[in-house]
Amino acid sequence: MESQTLYRTGLTGEAIASELLALPATKATRSRATPTSETRVVQRVLIGAALAYFALLVLTPLIVVFYQALRKGLEFYMIALSDSDTLSAIRLTLIVAAVAVPLNLVFGVAAAWSISKFDFRGKSVLVSLIDLPFAVSPVIAGLIYVLIFGLQGWLGPWLAAHDIKVIFALPGLLLATIFVTVPFVARGLIPLMEAQGKAEEEAALVLGASGWQTFWRVTLPNIKWGIIYGVILCNARAMGEFGAVSVVSGHIRGATNTMPLQVEILYNEYNYVAAFAVASLLALLALVTLAVKTAVEWRSAQGAPQ
């Protein structure tokens, strides 16, 4: 009698199942595994293990960084950060990020757009090339630039003759940073744009929009969150890169040291608290990045159309 009533009301099979499973509701029934989820115990163990792993490998070092940085008090912390070499390192990091991120943004959008909307020869090569920086060790990346632009490298004599400094100067730092951060925007956008397909773009074209109008009015708004996400990751990596930059830097104090390099220098001068102070800035950046990323994900999951 009961099941007939349920059937006539037009409930879906899922609703029926959950109705049946809910009667009678006892403690034992509630913690039984359903077809698509584990028992309470298993859930708790898995979540606990994940949290413990995270706490150990990520949270603890983060706490240590801030603890060590503030060990001698807030005043020392601020004075350490206002040392001229350190300020120069902060400035350099900001400049490098300010150049590398927009460049990679433009490239990433262009590459993702071509890959997802068109078919062309060499498409898979382009995709592999974009992933290349992930596969190559950053130190090797730095070395490549030394081999090309260094005094003994391919372009070395020409550059020297024209007094153009690439390696051991800002351009070298930019090249190394750009190389290691190239994939972030593109890789975030490609699956997104492929999932979105070309139909909206085709619709726009048929309605008379030009290529540029289509891109600006249709494509861009659809990938807005993907772009934001990619930029955030790209920026975090650009500011925190060590290996590649270290090779091409020359370590000239007050001139070619970024924040990560400055941390190493301070540490090597027994200036541990100052080293941790600069490291804490980078850690703060990481936290801010995480917060913004979470906010972005939350907003886009809401399906906010604007």
């Binding site: 003994q152 020297a160 400094k165």
Partner: peptide, 8 residues
Amino acid sequence: RSVIDGLE
């Protein structure tokens, strides 16, 4: 090595 590679 760095000086050889162009560190001025």
